[in-house]
């Protein structure tokens, strides 16, 4: 399942970069985060109980950040599982300076198989995008107001 989208932060790129890679911020912004621990540098384990409307579940998984290119891009890998089954995916986040604001674009691929891929995808895709948007929205609030 392809997951792409963008979010515009009303903050300069360096500030967004710093916020997005701060483990404490990641914990705070992850929708329904119940547990979060750093297992190694750029490697985390988390449990989240999240959802949208009727679609709801508890997921636990590993997050791995890699390919850091400050302050413009990094890769985020996710591997874990919940009731609907196991999930594995990774995507690249690109931060583009837009003169005071920052466009964050994500482009990822999650492996989903079986019926959930064919029948569930209609709702799964938009639900995932919705949760990502919630993450960015909360993240934006973590960035102290600047004079940008």
């Amino acid at each position: 399942m392809q997951l792409t989208g963008t979010y515009t932060f009303k903050a300069p790129r360096d500030a967004v970069w710093q916020a997005m890679l701060d483990p404490e911020n990641i914990r705070r912004c992850m929708p329904g985060c119940e547990e979060f621990k750093t297992t190694a540098e750029d490697q985390y384990e988390a449990v989240m109980k999240a959802g949208v409307g009727s679609i709801k579940g508890t997921f636990q998984g590993k997050i791995q950040l890699s390919e850091r290119q400050p302050p413009s891009s990094y890769r985020m890998g996710v591997e874990g599982g919940g009731k609907p089954g196991r999930v594995k995916g990774s995507g690249v986040l690109t931060l583009t300076d837009q003169g005071g604001t920052t466009l964050v674009a994500y482009d990822g691929d999650a492996q989903v198989a079986g019926l959930i891929a064919s029948v569930g995808q209609r709702l799964l895709g938009i639900t995932a995008r919705k949760l990502i948007e919630q993450f960015f929205k909360t993240m934006e609030k973590q960035i102290p107001a600047t004079s940008a």
Partner: peptide, 13 residues
């Protein structure tokens, strides 16, 4: 007919 299909996919539990 919305909820049971989601429950079968375990997107709702």
């Amino acid at each position: 007919h919305s909820l049971i299909p989601l429950m079968k996919l375990r997107l709702a539990a």
